[in-house]
């Protein structure tokens, strides 16, 4: 297993990581020959909580790349995100020409190189040379302990969700983040509060959020401006073609019957899960909302290029049926 990377500019990596940062303390980095995946999932119950999959074109971030492993040259690591970000910030502040990243077997606790004999612990070493104000050359090395994920159980958990039964997709305008701010006011009421997202192609595109507390209030917040809500032709499609179809802004050939109530779709999610995406929505150039029969997905592009995709999955809650209630 070998991982050797070098970069001069960590800006893209840093901004992507800081978008994922509020979600969880640990993330999984998956280095593949073409892509770097930054994955934030809950290790225990993957399906219950929102997960984020970022995929970055590895050649756009690093200028020297060497990845080799027995598993299709793919290396997956679990790492403390805050420490990684701290290191990247330190590198930014330094006067240096390049950051090197290596995967090392060595123990990070600095003892006399004791190997714990535990196959899963290693450290990710990030190092660079810095010339300080008194023109001393100082080499900095940061060793962050990582857990290498290689057994099948770990990998099972780490499967990118598939998009089945896509019902509606829409490109959200950049100003959409103000809806998040509005909904923030309801966050404090109850911890586990849920929110129902309603979308429809009728009325030249409708997207609304219903907040309700039994017997107390019912609030609907909706986007008044026009939305290009589309129904994809295929029931199931991968992220790539989905995004393309939205970005191309293909005019919808279907004629929408404004009286057809079956056009209305809705999904219920946790308000907290939805709100956590606010930073991502605020910073990304392109945001596409996808509603399937069971999930709600925010598919984002960080900048104008295709280099960084951030996909935020929220699994919907089944509408409470009377027996559960």
């Amino acid at each position: 297993m070998k991982l050797k990377l070098r970069t001069q500019n960590t800006e893209t990596l840093k901004s992507t990581l800081s978008l994922v940062n509020p979600l969880r303390k640990f993330i999984v980095l998956r280095f593949c020959p073409e892509k770097l995946y930054i994955i934030s999932v809950n290790g225990q119950s993957v399906t219950q909580e929102p997960q984020v999959w970022c995929n970055l074109k590895i050649s756009s971030i690093f200028d020297q790349i060497e990845i080799s492993s027995l598993r299709d040259d793919t290396i997956s690591l679990e790492i403390n995100l805050e420490l990684l970000l701290q290191t990247l910030r330190n590198f930014d502040r330094a006067n240096s020409d390049g950051l090197n990243i290596r995967l090392q077997r060595k123990d990070s606790s600095g003892g006399s190189g004791t190997n714990t004999g535990n196959g899963r612990t290693a450290s990710l070493a990030l190092f660079y040379a810095n010339v300080n104000a008194n023109s001393n050359t100082i080499n900095h090395t940061f060793r962050i302990p990582v857990k290498i994920l290689k057994n099948t159980h770990d990998m099972m958990l780490l499967k990118e969700p598939e998009l089945n039964d896509v019902q509606l997709i829409m490109k959200l305008p950049n100003e959409f983040v103000s809806i998040y701010k509005r909904m923030d006011k309801f966050k404090k009421t109850t911890n586990n509060e849920i929110i129902t997202i309603k979308a429809s192609r009728r009325q030249s595109g409708f997207l609304g959020f219903v907040l309700e507390e039994e017997g107390k209030y019912r609030v609907t917040i909706s986007w008044n401006d026009k939305l290009n809500v589309q129904r994809p032709n295929l029931a199931s499609m991968d992220g790539e073609s989905l995004r393309m179809s939205v970005l191309r802004n293909t005019t919808n050939s279907d004629v929408v019957d404004d009286n057809d109530e079956s056009e209305d779709k809705e999904i219920t999610v946790r308000l907290k899960d939805w709100q956590m995406a606010s930073k991502i929505v605020a910073s990304c150039k392109t945001v596409v909302l996808v509603i399937t029969s069971r999930d709600c997905i925010l598919h984002c592009l960080l900048d104008d290029s295709d280099d960084v995709e951030i996909i935020y999955y929220i699994s919907g809650i089944r509408i409470r049926n009377p027996i559960d209630y």
């Binding site: 606790s109 003892g111 001393n136 100082i138 090395t141 940061f142 060793r143 962050i144 857990k147």
Partner: peptide, 20 residues
């Protein structure tokens, strides 16, 4: 000093080194 329990880190320390 790192603390391991059941193959998981209890303490997750980062080590920082400067060399000159």
């Amino acid at each position: 000093k790192q603390v391991l329990k059941d193959r998981e880190y209890l303490k997750q320390p980062m080590s920082v080194t400067i060399t000159l």
